[in-house]
Computed example of a mutant assay.
Amino acid sequence: MDDTPPSTNLRSSAKTRRALAEERHAMSSSSPSSPYPPSTATTGSLVPTRRNSPFLPTPLETAILALFPALLAFGTLFSVLSPQVRRAEFDPTTQSHAQHPDEAPGYFARKDNLLNVFFVKRGWFWTTVAFAAFVLTHPTFRGGRGAGGGSSPKRFVTACTRWALITGAWFAATQWCFGPPLIDRHFMLTGGRCEVVLQEARELEKAAALDTGHVLSALACKSAGGAWKGGHDISGHVFMLVLSSGFLLSEVGWVYWRHRGRRDDRSIVMHDRAVKGAGVEADSTTERTGGRPEDALALGGKAVAVVVGLNCWMLLMTAIYFHTWFEKVTGLVASAIALYAVYILPRFVPALRQIVGLPGA
């Protein structure tokens, strides 16, 4: 026989009805078009939670990518405060503090240092090698134990598509874009030109051709014996080093994160404009409950770590010894635009996301 007083039963029933009403209100107030819908499924609470904006990097991405402006700021400050660097007069033509190897304030102030010659000058080759090693060796792409029981051709194809887009941005900015690369076009638009430095009489004909503006790229100017002067020279070194590092960290970072079973806090906009977590579109074979530690990065991931480490070191050396602060800032901004277009834009453009995918998904 139930000895519970009737008043207690009534109070309990009222609390239950009130809790259900609050839950229905919370669920109904979650508009599909709202960028920050409340969620009770993951927290077990009726307190609404805010998703990260699909239009911006996540807090984790922001913290990692903040490394690049921090290196540039530290290097620029060091170049101002270091007596050794200040004593070496900055040459705007060569964009460095080293007019002659014997006068260089440090080994990495010389453009013929080994890392600059064999690594930075061939930077995209090493970036591609590291990326290829990663996608060919990591379980997420090749299947097998720890990869959910099989490989995913779609993940491999979308990863290669993103590499092609980032490579296209690097090529158009620094190598060729239906003529001079974009960085050289910008230099000329801001008043730059190729000035003749050869003084011998037998070079007068070549000098006349140079003065008429027939040389439209820094490489052609240097090959013809001229000097690239006058305009705003976006730092190609900063652009390439940040673009390479951002690309590799984005590709490896999210694969590693999901492979270890960590929460993916990216948000995406669906075709019906609803904002959801990136996991809703993830390949089921990418869901992790924790992979083997030795598989988290694999051999290719370690190669990526080496390339990113060298990139960061040379970015610091560039910040200390080469280019003006504004040229370094514009190089950083140009690379950030390319990275945003490939890794953030697809999060709120579903049609683009179907083509390029998301790393780790």
Rank of each mutant, 00 (worst) to 15 (best):
D3L: 10
T8G: 00
N9F: 11
S13R: 13
A14K: 12
A14I: 12
E23V: 12
A26W: 03
M27T: 06
S33P: 01
P37G: 04
A41C: 09
L46W: 00
T58N: 09
T62V: 08
F68S: 12
A70G: 13
L72N: 14
L72S: 13
F74T: 15
G75E: 05
S79N: 03
P83G: 14
V85H: 05
T93I: 15
Q99C: 01
H100N: 08
H100V: 05
E103N: 10
P105E: 08
R110S: 11
F118W: 15
V120F: 11
R122H: 15
R122A: 15
G123M: 07
G123Y: 04
W124S: 09
F125P: 09
T128S: 15
T128L: 13
V129F: 05
T137V: 02
P139G: 02
F141G: 02
G143D: 09
A147H: 02
G148M: 02
G149K: 07
S151Q: 02
S152R: 06
P153E: 08
V157F: 12
I166G: 02
T167Y: 15
T174D: 06
W176S: 10
W176T: 02
F178E: 05
R185V: 00
F187Q: 08
M188Q: 14
T190H: 13
G192M: 13
R193I: 00
V196D: 11
E203A: 03
A208S: 12
A209K: 14
V215G: 03
S217L: 08
G226D: 03
K229R: 05
G230T: 03
G231D: 03
H232F: 08
D233A: 14
V238Y: 01
V242F: 07
S244G: 15
F247R: 04
F247S: 04
L248Y: 12
V252E: 04
V255N: 08
H259G: 01
G261D: 15
R266D: 06
S267D: 11
I268M: 05
V275D: 00
G277N: 06
A278E: 07
V280T: 15
A282T: 03
E287C: 03
G291R: 03
E294V: 15
A303C: 11
V304R: 00
V306L: 15
V308D: 08
M314F: 06
M314P: 06
L316K: 02
M317I: 00
A319P: 09
A319I: 06
Y321M: 14
K328W: 09
V333G: 01
S335D: 10
A336L: 11
A341S: 14
V342N: 07
Y343H: 10
P346K: 10
L352A: 14
L358K: 04
